[in-house]
Amino acid sequence: MITTREGGSSKAPFDSFNLGGKVGDDPEALRANTEKLAEGIGVPTANLVWMEQIHGRTATLVEGPQPEPVEATDALLTDRPGLALISLTADCVPILLGEPEAGVIAAVHAGRVGARVGVLVAALKSMRDAGADLGKVEALLGPAACGLCYEVPAEMQADVEKHLPGSACKTRKGTPGLDLRAGLWEQLAAVGIAKIGADPRCTVETPELFSHRRDDGKTGRFASVIWMEQEDA
C-alpha cells in the first residue's frame, strides 16, 4: 500500500498526510497521521515498524513490535503476521517484497546511494536467509523521481551505472540522468525475480506525492507499507 500527501492533518509545507518524523512537522499532526495510517490498514499503531533510513545497505529482521524506528537500516524484513513494515520516501525508490509461500516480506528504502551500494541485494539475501525462495518473490517498485527529472553530474551517473547497470539515462533536457527504478528492475531480474511491478508515477511530476527535489527539500514523506494479515484464532 502506498499513501499520498492527501487526507491528513499536517499544514504546509507538509500538507497534509506527512508520515516523516524528521522533517520538522508538528508532532501532533504527525501523531494523527500515524494513527490514521494504522486504522486504514487495520493494524495497531504499535505494530507499525519504521526505520531510521541512513542511505546504507543494512537489512534488519524484525520479530516483534518496535517502540522506536529501527536504527541505521534501510531495509526491514519479517516473517511475523501483523507487523506493517514501512519505507518513507519523497523521490527515493520504495521497494516492497513478498514471498507468499514462505511468509516473508520486506520493505526497502533505495535512494541513489543505497541503490548504488546494494541495499536491494542485501534485502533479498536476508529474505533468502529467512527461508524465502527468490524465484517466488513478488516485487513492487514504488513512485520515485523518474529519469527524465533526475539530473546528475556525468561523473555521478557513470559511477552509479557501474554499480547499478541500467540506471543511466538522459533527462528531458538531454543532460545526464539516473533512472534508479530501471537499474533496480534489472537487479531484481538478474537474481531471478519473475514477478516485478512498478508504480509509474514520478514524484517530481505528481502533485499528490511528496518530492524533495520539486519542493526544495522542505516537504513531507509518503509511506509504502507491506504487511501480512494475522490469521483468525
Rank of each mutant, 00 (worst) to 15 (best):
A102E: 09
A223P: 05
L37C: 10
L30N: 06
E151R: 02
H163D: 06
V121I: 07
K125N: 09
A32F: 03
K170Y: 00
G192S: 15
F222Q: 06
H212N: 09
P207H: 07
E28V: 09
P153C: 11
V204T: 03
Q230C: 00
E205A: 10
R172E: 15
L120G: 06
G197P: 02
I193E: 11
T78M: 08
T3Y: 12
T58H: 04
P67Q: 09
V108N: 14
L164H: 04
S167G: 15
A132T: 05
A158N: 03
P13S: 09
L97F: 12
M156N: 02
G177I: 02
L120H: 00
G24S: 08
H163Y: 02
G21I: 02
G142R: 05
I105Q: 11
I95N: 11
G98E: 10
E28K: 03
K195H: 15
L76G: 02
A130R: 08
G217E: 11
I54C: 14
E186A: 14
R214P: 05
G197H: 11
A158D: 00
A72D: 12
A130H: 03
K11V: 12
V108L: 15
L97M: 15
W185L: 13
F14H: 05
T78S: 13
K136E: 15
V137N: 14
G64H: 01
I54N: 15
L164A: 02
T73C: 07
D199C: 08
T58C: 00
L134R: 07
N47D: 13
G147R: 06
L96I: 01
K11M: 10
